[in-house]
Structure formats: structure tokens, C-alpha cells
Amino acid sequence: MEKNLNLNLKVWRQKNAEDKGGFQEYKLKDISTDMSFLEMFDVLNEKLIVEGGDPIAFDHDCREGICGSCSMFINGRPHGPKQGVTTCQLHMRSFNDGETIVVEPWRASAFPVIKDLVVNRSAFDRIISAGGFVSVNIGNAQDANSILIPKVDADESFAAAACIGCGACVAACKNASAMLFVSAKVSQFALLPQGQPERKQRVLDMVAHMDEEGFGACTNTGACSAECPKEISLTHIARMNRDYLTAELSTESK
């Protein structure tokens, strides 16, 4: 049932990319447990505005866990204490009265902070541009049912494609590695017949680009998958490793 909480917040504030930034403390009273975490931030921001302060910048949009915008590192975990949810779906009933909550932006050299809790995740877009697609031009596709796909493969491909590109995997990983994100896309297409013609080149290009962006290497800690709001499995990373090695060893290009 609904309760009200008093909270101490420690939030990372940084004016812009050049600013050094630091933590700022805020006290909040009477926060309903029915609120979402972001609604609690709305309350705080409204308070800050009325008091003449500068509201905290944070990314958010759909607020139903699918757009992948929200990106808060809450009490040492991306998207906070619950598993399988994004920050926007996290509700205040997951916190206790009097609790101190520390909120930081995603930290990675490939995700530079823009302001406060907002980071630049365009590295993900560039990785997709490097090969995260099937090269079919529009207008000349064959009939959809002429491609038969076993249900298990379609389901597994979908499970990989469920990635929302929020970057929690990078944020959670002690190496700031993007392997889960990249492997989800590689895997989605590797499992489908449509993805086969470009399968090898895709994985080579995407991995090369991932490395260029300055993400760390994978040490298989599993933190990415454990914190992924869409619970994307580590099997996709294994599949990408396999595909990458096969591709390097077998493609004709030197």
C-alpha cells in the first residue's frame, strides 16, 4: 500500500562536458511509494525551479521501459536495485524511508557526460552504422512467407533484438565494454536467414568499430546481462565471439 518516504539524494551535477562536476545533496519529503523514480526527480526539479535553482538534467522519454533513454546509475547499479527494469519503471516502493540514494551518470570514456546525468551515447548509433543492418533496398523484397524461419530461431533472434540500446551493459561492466549491445545485434541477424549473406563482414565491421569507440574488452563477468533491463543473455556474446573468430579465420580478404 502507498506510503510516504523522506529521502536524502546525492546527485551528480555537472554543468557541461568541460565542467569538473561533483555531488550535490538534496532532501526530499513525503515522496509517495507509488511514484516512479523519474517522477520523484520531477518533484525534485519542480522544487529546484521554484526555489530559483537549476533543475537536474536527465534523459527520459517514453517512461514505459522501451525507448532506452533513461540512464541513471542508482546506488551503484544501472537502473537501480531491481532486475529487468529501466529507471523509468523503477518505483519508489523499492526504497526505504530515510534512505540515502546516490545517483550518477553512466561512466565510460565512450559515453562522455553532456550535462548532469545526461551522457552522449551516439557511439552506439555509429556501431550500428558500421554493420548493424541487412543491406536490402526498399521495394524489392520477396514475399514474407517465402522465408521459413524455425520458431526457436525467430524467438531467439527476437530475444536479442529486444535490446533497447540504453547502455546499462556498458555502465554495469567494470571494463565499460559494449559487448552485450553489439552481440545482441550481431546475434539477431546471425540467427536469421536474412542475415547470412553479410554475416561475416557484419561481425568484423561492428567489432572493429566497437573497439575504435574506446569501449573496454569483455571479461565475462556477466554484470551486463544481470543488469540488462531486457535480460539479454550472455549466449549472444559467445555467439559473437564464435562468429568473429570464424570470420577472421575464414574470410578471403586479407
Binding site: K10, W12, F23, F73, N75, G76, R77, P81, V102, E104, R107, A108, S109, A110, A172, K174, N175, A176, S177, G214, F215, G216, T221, G222, A223, A226, E227
Partner: peptide, 15 residues
Amino acid sequence: ARPVKYAVQNGAANS
């Protein structure tokens, strides 16, 4: 790859 570290990181929760 992570030049600025987290102030609080609860690694035990996920690995």
C-alpha cells in the same frame, strides 16, 4: 575505458 570511476559501485549485485 572508464576514466571517471563511480562513487558507489555495487558490483556484488551483478557479478
